[in-house]
Write a protein that binds this DNA or RNA. Structure first.
Length: 323
DNA sequence: AGTTGGACCTGACTGC
DNA sequence: TGCAGTCAGGTCCAAC
């Protein structure tokens, strides 16, 4: 066993370590607040700028397309009109192709209309805007060369992310977002909506919260935190929630996500998520349960529990505060 | 139709 | 020292 000196040192770091009996790097994945942070920062940087060229460095990132060339044909020569978001994905809304950029005139019909470039961040996706001279970071999956000498780079360590393009700006009709549920801050998302969405869902609350077809944008971190704020065990059957429970869940969803956006997202450890400027988010400081297994609940002091979800992933919750 | 579990992928860590 | 095994996560797909 540890000496008393060691025990003291352990106590000092207990707050960090107790959550991770095995201290492998647990990735903080980009969910809605992280994607929204990047969207907010990206739009003023690149709106109005034309994409000269796209280079796919990891072919897997463009797997929705027959070839990277197909992706290039859709986006090259177009001006970025706006930067949007759907769920956990950042979308670049591109205008009609700008001529004078060396494209043959006979491709005029293909150039007409609008295109949406979709960047789904997956687990470890980052977006950077850098001068084109900047050395290319390891795991850079794709980069967009802009007309002004900068590049938008999509870096994705674990390659779960995705970059694709579709004609038009109607994101909800695109295969990437097929069947997606409402945005948590939309009018469509309401306690009444939850009632019908949960009606035939006997799966655990956490599983249903993370289902993008129910609510768009929630992943593990925020499913844990939302369940805590709502005072509901993540192991509950979604269909078994009462009206007042759904009301609390609805409110907690909006509160937690709004707070996390204010904090520029979560960077639960020194790895993975950073905002557009490489700065970690701050929401991890306000987490009550996520990755706090064994630590004292900030409300009641009860040790935070970890239960495996179907598929083996952990749900973190307080046995006393959550019923 | 809804639920569950495996595969994908990488880096960090554990145990031999 | 080094290698094999384990784990995390979002999403898709197959099986129940």
């Amino acid at each position: 066993m540890a000496s008393s000196k060691q025990a003291g040192a352990e106590a000092l770091v207990a707050g960090r370590r107790a959550a991770a009996p095995k201290a492998w790097a647990e990735a903080a994945m980009p969910e809605l607040p992280e994607a929204e942070t990047i969207r907010c920062q990206l739009e003023p940087e690149v709106a109005g700028v034309t994409i000269r060229k796209i280079r796919v460095l990891i072919a897997r990132a463009a797997r929705e397309h027959q070839s990277p060339r197909e992706l290039a044909r859709l986006v090259e020569g177009r001006r970025i009109a706006r930067v949007g978001r759907r769920g956990k994905a950042v979308v670049l809304l591109l205008g009609p192709r700008c001529f004078g950029s060396g494209l043959p005139k006979q491709r005029a019909s293909a150039a007409a209309g609008q295109v949406t470039l979709i960047i789904r961040l997956g687990m470890t996706g980052l977006i950077q805007v850098v001068p084109d001279k900047e050395p290319i970071a390891k795991h850079t999956a794709a980069l967009l060369e802009l007309e002004d000498g900068r590049q938008i780079r999509f870096v994705d360590q674990r390659q779960f992310g995705l970059i694709s393009a579709r004609p038009g700006h109607e994101v909800d009709s695109m295969p990437e977002f097929e069947g997606y549920g409402p945005e948590p801050f939309s009018d469509e998302f309401s306690p009444e909506y939850l009632k019908q969405a949960f009606a035939r869902r006997s799966a655990q609350l956490e599983v249903v919260l993370m289902d993008q077809k129910v609510i768009a944008g929630i992943g593990k971190i925020y499913a844990d935190e939302i369940s805590f704020r709502a005072g509901l065990r993540p192991t509950r059957r979604a269909s078994g929630l009462t009206g007042p429970m759904r009301q609390r869940l609805w409110q907690a969803t909006r509160e937690v996500l709004a707070e996390a956006i204010q904090c520029r997202g979560s960077s639960a450890n020194d790895e993975t998520y950073r905002d557009l400027y490489g700065i970690p988010g701050e929401f991890q400081k306000r987490m009550y349960v996520y990755q706090r297994t064994g630590e004292a609940c900030r409300i009641c002091g009860t040790p935070i529990k970890r239960t495996a979800m179907p598929g083996g992933r952990g749900m973190h919750w307080c046995p006393k505060c959550q019923r």
